[in-house]
Design a protein around this nucleic acid. Sequence first.
RNA 1: GGCGAGAUGGCUCAACUGGCUAGAGCAUCCGGUUCAUACCCGGAAGGUUGAGGGUUCAAGUCCCCCUCUCGCUACCA
Length: 656
Amino acid sequence: MKNEKYYITTAIAYTSGKPHIGNSYEIVLADSIARFKRKQGYDVFFQTGTDEHGQKIELKAEEAGITPKEFVDDVAGQIKDICDCLNTSYDKFMRTTNPEHEKQVQKMFKKFYDQGDIYKGAYEGMYCTPCESFWTEAQLVDGKCPDCGREVKPAKEEAYFFKMSKYADQLIDYINTHPEFIQPVSRKNEMMNNFLLPGLQDLCVSRTSFKWGIPVDFDDKHVVYVWLDALTNYITGIGFDADGNHSDQYKKFWPADLHLIGKDIVRFHTIYWPIFLMALGEPLPKQVFGHPWLLAGSGKMSKSLGNVLYADDLAKFFGVDAVRYFMIHEMPFENDGAITWDLMTERINSDLANVLGNLVNRTISMSNKYFGGVVENKNVNEAVDDDLKAVVTGTYKKVCAKMDELRVADSITEIFNLFKRCNKYIDETEPWAIAKDEAKKDRLATVLYNLTESIAIGASLLEAYLPETADRIVKQLNTELRSFDDIEKFGLYPSGTKVVEKPEILFARLDINDVLAEADRIAAIQKAEAGVVEEEAKEENVIDIEPKVEITYDDFAKLQFQVGEIIACEEVKKSKKLLCSQVKIGSQTKQIVSGIKLHYSAEEMVGKKVMVLVNLKPATLAGIVSEGMLLCAEDADGNLALVTPEKEMPAGAEIC
RNA sequence: GGCGAGAUGGCUCAACUGGCUAGAGCAUCCGGUUCAUACCCGGAAGGUUGAGGGUUCAAGUCCCCCUCUCGCUACCA
């Protein structure tokens, strides 16, 4: 038994809605690791939870006509239900609306401010309106926007910034001297090359544009930036105190041994989070693993398509451990995995039903058929037994090696190799043939004992991944799950034990037609729900944007809008998003570059009459001069629609 | 555009610093078996390792070039 501690966390789930299967998989992965470590003798603390602040939630709550707190209470409940329905063994479910957490975040923010890590941004001359970006003094190039090189203006709003640059060198050094810190290593390179080496920019850590967040206690116009709020859950959840009065739990468990997160938020966990910790004077987490995603077959999940997969639906239909098995098995280390009803069916049938379920079933059946269910070791050994025993007792080491590398999918495959070896052993020994010879009765008993013992060991290895199944197996064998201390010893199954009379089907084989019928049923329900939602949404399909300052008519009159006809258009080859159009405005033609390639093809642009801002100062984009701006409407998802006159108008007509 | 990763049998992937007929699982076909959930065991077929060129006794592995895919990032007048 080891006496070391092991602190593992998942990312906390954002409470903007019920998470689909792709978001639920992380908790199962973490759970397998946590259970495995516990079984290895580590003192494990496993924390998960919810991230409950932010503008999106504020808006969703408003739409639903309830308070943000009511909204997140509901969603956090759903998320916790999913964690529970997947049988995950978290020790703490942390919510960022927890009052103690909120208090600590405020204290940390104040501490950072007091020690000069956070400063109030002075906006004069620092906001580049066209770029919609805030810049700090250090970032300005000759006092101008470092992006477009134009004048920056005083902004109306103030914000607090965190001096990331102060800690950047220290972080670079840490990452370089701790190669295991960021996993997989490809992520490490991305962080270094894109953020750290080019020079880390200071981060804006407060917002004034919405209210649903933790207020900055010494300046309550501001709420704390959601990431600063969210990331700190890893320490506040175990009793960190900004004044240094940490709980014993914190002293014991921090730093975390593993932050398990999705690959999309690696940046926050490997750059900002370590820097916040440095500023607090706390040690950094030992490892951050940005796992890939489990994607639903081809394309996006959407309710209107009826193809959203939810962990609880799947667990209800396939069983909890079948879903766990699929997630763990299919979850690759570096590339995204796929989940579909077909793939689920295939995995369950071939691995769980055929290999494992059938093995347990046939073994128990034989014990009952030949020995009335009593499994006895008569020690009549043959050479063929040796390899079986070697494989069975050697599996633990292989599984450990894979787990140490966080290759959880590979580790469960090792366990199934053990079961496959058992099936082969049955074929090699042919118990039904031995049974015909009364003189070989003791040999037959030994064979069945070896099988039963092998299964008991296999089930014990499986416990961390499929706890319920492991339990069901040993119950049928009338024994108990074995500790890892005894997992490499063959022969501990008590000789003379009587197994159950009638073996239970662990995993029934699935008929693909039944499965697809279930998929259709769920799809129909989702579509129906989506239909209702869509109709409601139609009436309410509006977007609120950040209000800008009031302008005078004179301000407006400075803008020259005209109808332009696109007479030619081509893609800007070097860019993913830019189209270059020749726009006829009256008798002249202007060249305008627009970031709309993802929404319009060059061909379909030609002939359109669009609204153009004509007197905008020319700028160079991707090396091409742009002499104006095509106006578009943009929805919440970033979809663009060109604005065109609703009646036929000549090119050059003024818009006023 | 910048940086990075990758392209291997129908599918998913493997092959450490170049080294014996390029491996495994699933799917397919054939055979065996009957204790068992039409299951299990064995075997076979299937790859000029994205294209082309080069280095070497030897290249999936190294170099050059081309095509394509993906990730992060920038651009979005």
